[in-house]
Design a protein around this nucleic acid. Structure first.
Lengths: 64, 64
DNA sequence: GTAAAATGTCAAATATACTTGACATTATCG
DNA sequence: CGATAATGTCAAGTATATTTGACATTTTAC
């Protein structure tokens, strides 16, 4: 589960469909990334970050 | 060209082959990521970051 | 409580990340 | 100069990210 991404998206007032449309991918793709069910591509991560006004570390970095 | 990644790798005293072996991918994959010829997967980016002791933003974020 | 929107999920097809193996070129260093 | 390590690159195959379409479930709001 990518809670940070979900929270950021909702804070921007976007549905999964809105975000998907904004960055030019399928709604299912956004859904699966949010649910942490797979591995997005770097370019997809970058698109999401730019659409939500944050950086890679904000959404996809986990301290270990 | 991902100069930041190349510099970090060399600073760690690793060849492309060393890094590839350390993270369990083919040498060519490391080479192509460094040369910016394609889109790595998020999990690959994370492996590279952990091997080189830095974060996603350090290696893969570009201000626009 | 009911309609509408948002989200979760499945299966099949397509695009592309990544592998393997092999060879060419470019540094590095005796 | 000559050997060796490091890097660049090609082609063909495999694994998997992403799409499309469709339907089920949950949430939101009237």
């Amino acid at each position: 589960m990518n809670h940070k991404m979900r929270e950021k998206r909702q804070a921007c007032g976007l549905s999964q469909a809105d975000l998907a449309k904004a960055i030019g991918v399928a709604r299912q793709t956004v859904n699966m990334v949010e649910n942490g069910e797979y591995n997005p591509t770097l370019s997809l991560c970058l698109k999401i970050c730019r659409a939500l006004g944050c950086t890679l570390d904000d959404l996809f970095w986990e301290e270990k």
